[in-house]
């Protein structure tokens, strides 16, 4: 069945197809409870991620308290500015269940730097989460995610990983 909206689950809203492939690669990892994660359709740009989140998913976030959401976007070299902007768009009452992650520049750069396919990157990131290690997450293009990742892992580990 689809994710059970009354049980803890995670929706991932990717900015574009490379981010979508990474998210699907994450769910492909055998350590991941893939039935508790749903990768949504690509938004088509980081601004649209925020717009779609507000227009389509805000009501559901309030209706279903077990729902978490990852906004997966590119930071185009300005991670702190963008995170601040996005954070201002997330209402206070659900802020603890919304997480903003992404590559500090673009996924293409991460793929080229690591010589891995997008799915493989996603799977490697899931493995690190399952093993409770920083590993791949400490790559130069990803390490800016650390505080947000720690917050996410603490929240989702009980239901997302075996």
């Amino acid at each position: 069945m689809s994710v059970n909206k009354h049980k803890p689950h995670l929706l991932v809203l990717p900015e574009d197809d490379p981010n979508r492939q990474m998210a699907d690669g994450f769910a492909l990892d055998l350590n991941c409870n893939y039935r508790a994660i749903q990768v949504l359709r690509e938004a088509g740009g980081w601004v649209k991620v925020v717009d779609i989140f507000k227009s389509d998913y805000l009501p559901g976030m309030r209706q279903f308290p077990e729902r978490r959401m990852v906004l997966l976007m590119d930071f185009d070299g300005k991670p702190e500015d963008r995170k601040s902007f996005v954070a201002r768009e997330i209402p206070e009452d659900i802020k603890n269940r919304v997480f903003v992650l992404g590559v500090s520049s673009e996924p293409e750069n991460l793929r080229n730097a690591t010589d891995k396919k997008y799915e493989e990157i996603g799977t490697a990131l899931a493995e690190d989460c399952a093993e409770n290690r920083q590993g791949f997450w400490m790559h130069d293009l990803l390490k800016h995610n650390e505080p947000e990742l720690n917050r996410l892992i603490e929240d989702v580990r009980p239901f997302l990983f075996k």
Binding site: M1, S2, L28, L30, Y34, Q38
Partner: peptide
């Protein structure tokens, strides 16, 4: 169901 069905096969 489609997404999880495909993922279950791939996994």
């Amino acid at each position: 169901e489609v997404g999880h069905f495909i993922l279950s096969l791939r996994r």
